[in-house]
Amino acid sequence: MKKNDIILAAAIFLFAGLLSAIIFFSGNERGSFVTVTIDKKVYGTYSLGENQDITIDTEFGHNVLHIENGSVSMTEADCPDGYCKRQGKISTEKETIVCLPHKLVVEIRGTNTDDGQTEEQTDGQTDEDYDILVK
């Protein structure tokens, strides 16, 4: 064994440590929506505020998500590795639950990118129209 081996190992651990620190201090915003993506396509967006179980059955397999008190976890999956069930509860925007065999990604978002925004926009427009009418 050479001195360079130890330097190399130390460099890898240091890099991993720095990266962990960056991850630790960023993206800690608690989200309010859960987006499920399967095979690169958005499968659905759900509110984190509502305690619920979401059953997902696709050609890739069966998964069940559990939303409780603002965090989401994978409670059931018939994938061969079962890694997704071991990834615990997530509640911040940087975190994901990944079920690779099912090409499934669970993400936390601050705003609903599906229809929430458009709803807000139309609300804003009608308010403006109303203002104009009043004037």
């Binding site: 890898i12 991993a16 940087k94 690779l100 993400e107």
Partner: peptide
């Protein structure tokens, strides 16, 4: 490969522990 399959860069969240375990 995993990041390419799901087309999601957030998966690199797992890089630090993976580097350490592999090392």
């Amino acid at each position: 490969v995993a990041a390419a399959v799901v087309e999601n860069a957030k998966i690199f969240y797992y890089l630090p522990p993976l580097l350490c375990v592999g090392c």
